[in-house]
Write a protein that binds this DNA or RNA. Structure first.
Lengths: 160, 160
DNA sequence: TTTCGTGCAAAGGTTTTGCACCGCA
DNA sequence: TGCGGTGCAAAACCTTTGCACGAAA
């Protein structure tokens, strides 16, 4: 599924809900699609969108991200560095991704495996709670960082 | 271990690092201990402390929470509602707790079990990443909320 | 005296909101 | 015309910081 198809699909989702795919929204979506792995902040998105559409306002980006959040097209996340970060949720998003956050190099690595299916069933059984979403972050240190005692890699946007 | 002993222990931790247990810090700790399950925000803590010590300033509460965070006595968390929340980490804190966040009633339930020990070993093996901390939140709906189609319970502070 | 901790107020940074305007049905 | 969407600036909000003062070693 290429970017055009993706945007087309999202366009239909918007239309169903009575929203329009304005040029600003389309470009914001493109930026999100092109940086799918990067956990962009609103400011990041704004700067990238501005390159393609210089007249856009920051408020529009916030409003678009908010809208896309509500429609569960993007997911708003928070890594504790004071800014919200946004992730496109692609079609197979039932298996949420997890994160490794390295305290030394600040890298934020994504892990695509889903480890929690069993756990979610257990929670449904034992707590009467139906999980729709989860979030799993590990904080720690890469061995390489630890051995070298210096930053080893930076994947995506670093988080303080 | 009662509150006095706990504070005593924390006092020693502070002393070792060259910090003092001022009245302000002691009362802040008491509030945290008395509301251990509540995920208080800085503002929450401030208001509760102010009842016992009306002259305290908000900045002091922030500074105390920051200090306690650095010493890993409390843990700073973020549930995406725009404020940081703080949890005391009691002695057996190696097994981090997890959360169920209900979208209907806003309840934030704590789960004391540790399900991720195996996973952390796997991560160390396969990703060369040594985990010191993790965070696991599940979002979803309580069956009771779903059946009644209205909020079913509120545990601790609700989160928007 | 020196140092750490404090209260207050101001500043900082992120996000939201009010408002006038614009384009499309 | 009506309405959703936009840009801009102002506001709101949470958190941090500068500064002068105070208490304790």
């Amino acid at each position: 599924m290429d970017i055009v198809e993706q945007i087309d699909k999202i366009n239909r989702q918007l239309t169903v809900k009575g929203y329009k795919l304005t040029p600003q929204r389309e470009i914001t979506l493109k930026v999100l699609l092109e940086n799918e792995k990067d956990h962009l902040s609103a400011e990041d998105v704004f700067m990238l969108v501005k390159q393609k559409f210089p007249d856009i306002g920051l408020a529009t980006v916030y409003r678009t991200l908010e809208l896309l959040s509500e429609l569960h097209i993007v997911q708003k996340m928070n890594f504790g560095d004071g800014v919200a970060r946004f992730d496109l949720r692609m079609e197979g998003h039932d298996h949420m991704h997890h994160h490794l956050v390295c305290k030394v190099c600040g890298a934020l690595e994504e892990i695509e495996e889903d480890w929690l299916t069993d756990l979610e069933q257990k929670i449904a059984r034992e707590y009467g709670f139906q999980v729709t979403d989860h979030r799993l972050d590990f904080r720690g240190v890469y061995q390489t960082c630890k051995n070298n005692n210096k930053p080893c890699k930076r994947v995506g946007k670093a988080v303080s």
